[in-house]
Amino acid sequence: MNVATPCDPQEYEASMQLAALFFLQRHQAEHLGNDQLLFSRAVQHLTGSLEVPLHISEKLVTRAYGEMKCRSKRHQLDVEASSTSVAVVTDPSSGLTWAVPVNLIYERIINAADNRRLRLVTP
Rank of each mutant, 00 (worst) to 15 (best):
N2W: 13
A4F: 15
C7W: 05
C7P: 04
C7T: 08
D8H: 14
D8C: 15
D8V: 15
P9N: 04
P9W: 11
E11S: 02
E11F: 02
E11K: 05
E11W: 00
Y12N: 06
E13R: 12
E13W: 05
S15H: 14
M16H: 02
Q17S: 03
Q17F: 02
Q17M: 12
L18F: 15
A20S: 11
L21W: 05
L21G: 04
F23H: 10
F23D: 00
Q25A: 09
H27V: 01
A29H: 12
E30F: 00
L32Y: 03
G33N: 01
N34A: 11
N34L: 11
D35S: 12
L37K: 01
L37V: 01
L38I: 07
L38M: 00
F39S: 00
S40F: 01
S40M: 00
R41N: 11
R41D: 04
V43H: 01
V43E: 01
L46W: 02
T47D: 02
G48M: 14
S49F: 07
E51C: 12
E51N: 15
V52S: 02
V52C: 08
H55K: 06
I56S: 01
I56W: 02
S57W: 03
E58Q: 08
L60H: 02
T62F: 07
T62E: 12
T62K: 09
R63C: 06
A64S: 15
A64E: 06
M68W: 06
K69V: 10
C70G: 15
C70A: 13
R71H: 14
R71S: 15
S72F: 06
K73P: 00
R74V: 13
R74I: 14
R74C: 11
H75E: 14
L77Q: 06
D78A: 08
E80L: 13
E80N: 06
A81C: 11
A81T: 13
S82F: 02
S82R: 09
S82Q: 10
S82L: 02
T84R: 13
A87D: 04
A87R: 01
V89I: 10
V89R: 08
D91Q: 15
D91K: 12
P92Y: 05
P92C: 03
S94P: 15
S94Q: 08
S94G: 11
S94Y: 10
S94W: 11
G95W: 11
L96Q: 15
T97Q: 09
V100Q: 00
V102N: 09
V102M: 11
N103L: 12
L104Y: 05
I105D: 10
Y106F: 07
E107I: 05
I110Q: 15
A112V: 06
D114F: 08
D114M: 15
N115K: 13
R116A: 13
R117P: 01
R119Q: 10
R119Y: 02
V121K: 14
T122Q: 07
P123W: 00
P123I: 07
